[in-house]
């Protein structure tokens, strides 16, 4: 089943006069992990932010369950955001440095006003346990946490609205390798247990290869190749894909 259908998405940054996303069209199917791989500046993070309407697209359409996300009203979009979440690359930048972990998660419920009082705290504890942290973290400041722990909090926050789709924007690339494996384990496990759909963005072909079902290769704002993980890794067609694979030291 098609969960998201993106057609002809364009975004140009006027200041830099570059097309960050130059006509992206693709579909994401329910329950799959779709990888998006490319080098820095190829537009993959911009694409992620466009899909969640965190920045405005120049033109195109993003259909989620018969609704064009680019056309619906702001208040409609705010409700829809519950189903579409994002995990960011830099765990040091993605949490408000002044907030306690409990507040970070409980804020999600404050905004949507669907859970209140004691229940809020219980939900927060439950979420922290889901991501491998405990109740003791409620009162800690994000600045006291390690990168891996912060990333877990970021994942807990994304899970708080019970989303069906999560964009993972380089979620492990700023982590140490032993922590990276822990977080990848957590993401794989959550995806299976909750039947989540991921758009998994990374520059690291190793990471992409280990977690994705399908892969899109992006270069300078354009899609150069897409296919099943098997085809891309075993039988790449495009020169750029080949050079990426050769450079990735995967042996």
């Amino acid at each position: 089943m098609e969960l998201l259908k993106i057609s002809n998405l364009y975004k140009t940054f006027k200041k830099h006069k570059v097309s960050a996303v130059d006509g992206a069209s693709f579909s994401i199917f329910k329950g799959e992990v779709l990888g998006l791989v490319g080098e820095s500046g190829c537009g993959k993070t911009t694409l992620a932010k466009l899909i969640l309407r965190l920045i405005d697209a120049d033109k195109g359409s993003i259909f989620y369950k018969d609704k064009d996300l680019l056309k619906i009203s702001h208040s409609d979009m705010r409700k829809t955001r519950k189903s579409l979440q994002i995990i960011f690359q830099d765990p040091y930048a993605s949490l408000d440095p002044r907030m306690r972990i409990g507040e970070v998660i409980e804020e999600v419920y404050d905004i949507h006003k669907d859970v209140t009082g004691r229940e809020k705290k219980n939900k927060a504890i439950e979420l922290l346990e889901t991501v491998g942290l405990g109740e003791t973290y409620l009162q800690r400041l994000s600045s006291e946490l390690s990168g891996g722990e912060r990333q877990r909090v970021g994942i807990a926050r994304a899970l708080a609205t019970d989303p069906e789709f999560i964009i993972c924007d380089e979620p492990v690339s700023s982590l140490d390798i032993s922590i990276q494996a822990q977080i990848l384990n957590l993401l794989i496990d959550l995806q299976k247990r909750k039947n989540l759909t991921y758009l998994f963005i990374s520059h690291d072909l190793g990471v992409i290869g280990s977690i994705c079902d399908r892969v899109i290769v992006m270069q300078s704002g354009k899609f150069v190749e897409s296919g099943s993980c098997e085809t891309i890794f075993r039988n790449p067609k495009h020169e750029y894909t080949k050079s990426l694979l050769e450079s990735a030291l995967l042996s």
């Binding site: 494996a181 990848l184 290869g209 280990s210």
Partner: peptide
């Protein structure tokens, strides 16, 4: 912990 295509969809022995 090194992620790779060969390791597909399996949990890491982290």
């Amino acid at each position: 912990s090194i992620p790779s295509f060969e390791h597909r969809k399996k949990l890491f022995n982290a």
